[in-house]
Nucleic acid binder design. Structure first.
Lengths: 208, 208
DNA sequence: GTTCCAACTGAACCTGCGGTACAGTTAAGT
DNA sequence: ACTTAACTGTACCGCAGGTTCAGTTGGAAC
């Protein structure tokens, strides 16, 4: 049988390949600075090939953000799912999940490559209201998830100090985002994981 | 006497005006997406005027980052200076400083406009090693400052749990950066201040 | 074995951007 | 009166950027 030719025709994988290449560049240089020429050169296709997959450059931005949000949801599903199998106590589940999350980002080959939500937020004047709404709802969904877990924790273990659970839910996202900025600015691939673990310590302190 | 004409000649203020306009645009769209044409139009000067002040576009980037780091240092000096006048206890000084910091960012007219360190970190492939080093050292200086305060706090009030003070110092920066991302992504100008205050709660808990 | 379609290629187009060159102008300082 | 800083005005350049579209290819279905 004919083995899978990787170059001649890629049978549907091209779009994903374009997006992988584009995402890496966008996270390192920004959206406007990432040229279609550079993407198609790296993907070994022509410019026309790019425009077969994306109607224009903004369609690429939207597709990247949508895919990124789905991938992140999948990671959280995985991490909280695995945590829920290891304990029945809401606090333990949350603490285990944060530990697993720290491990996931620590084990990424070159550290976390960067968050598309953050880049989009820092370049939002480039995009239309739809993309901005997508970004807003993506972060809101993360916060809602964390907030759900935190409510379960708080009922089982009343916090030792009054804290706003909405703010605390946002802080999980915020510490991740801040950790990535630290990691990139300091060129220290362990910074994000350490920030997550420190937040974990604080959450452990709070509910006990 | 001739009153100060604000338009005809700005007596040295032009360079600052260029930088103000450029910074706002860079924080909203990214560096590459901010064109010189657009800057000079907003600053009501000509292109030649721009190149009189900056040898090229990268010189603008460097100048923006240098100025931003100085401004941030000034804010921290102010906040910790005022806090030190209100207490002698290291913990109280730190807690007051964080409160004041939250107030400062809360009272900004449209919320915090964004951190140049974060944009630079997320677009570092656009810049040379010098700018990247500037960014790294800027964040390192913030961390060193916070770390100094934290050491004083820890000797006066041993922490109730073992934590790495380097990570905690980084977290002050990280929570600010994460708070800005949240603020931009959620379009909620209060997010950053609330994140700082929540970190303050955690620090209060830790050293007691 | 023609027809059909998805997945491209090739070539051209045009705008806008960063940057240059350089001569002239204005007002403040000395 | 002379000098200097801080610009303006105009013209130009090369090229890289996004976009368009007519045409090609190769596998699958009938």
């Amino acid at each position: 049988m004919a083995e899978e030719s990787e170059v001649i025709r890629s049978r549907g994988g091209t779009r994903e390949r374009i997006m992988d290449i584009a995402q890496e560049a966008v996270l390192a240089k920004g959206f406007e600075a990432t040229s279609i020429d550079e993407i198609v050169a790296a993907a070994r296709i022509t410019k026309s090939g790019f425009f077969y997959h994306f109607s224009d450059k903004t369609a690429l931005a939207r597709a990247l953000l949508e895919r990124y949000l789905e991938q992140e949801e999948a990671i959280f599903d995985d991490v909280f799912g695995r945590a829920a199998e290891l304990s029945d106590d809401p606090l333990q589940i949350l603490l285990i999940a944060l530990k697993l999350l720290a491990e996931v980002v620590e084990n990424l080959p070159n550290g976390h490559p960067g968050c598309l939500v953050a880049t989009t937020a820092y370049q939002d004047r480039l995009f239309d209201a739809e993309v901005r709404a997508l970004n807003r709802e993506g972060v809101a969904a993360w916060s809602a998830r964390f907030r759900g877990h935190l409510e379960a924790v708080a009922t089982a273990h009343p916090p030792t100090r009054p804290v706003n659970l909405d703010d605390l839910a946002d802080m999980v996202t915020g510490v991740c985002e801040g950790g990535i900025v630290l990691q990139k600015a300091l060129d220290d691939r362990t910074a994000m994981a350490r920030q997550i673990l420190l937040l974990r310590t604080f959450i452990g302190m709070l509910f006990r």
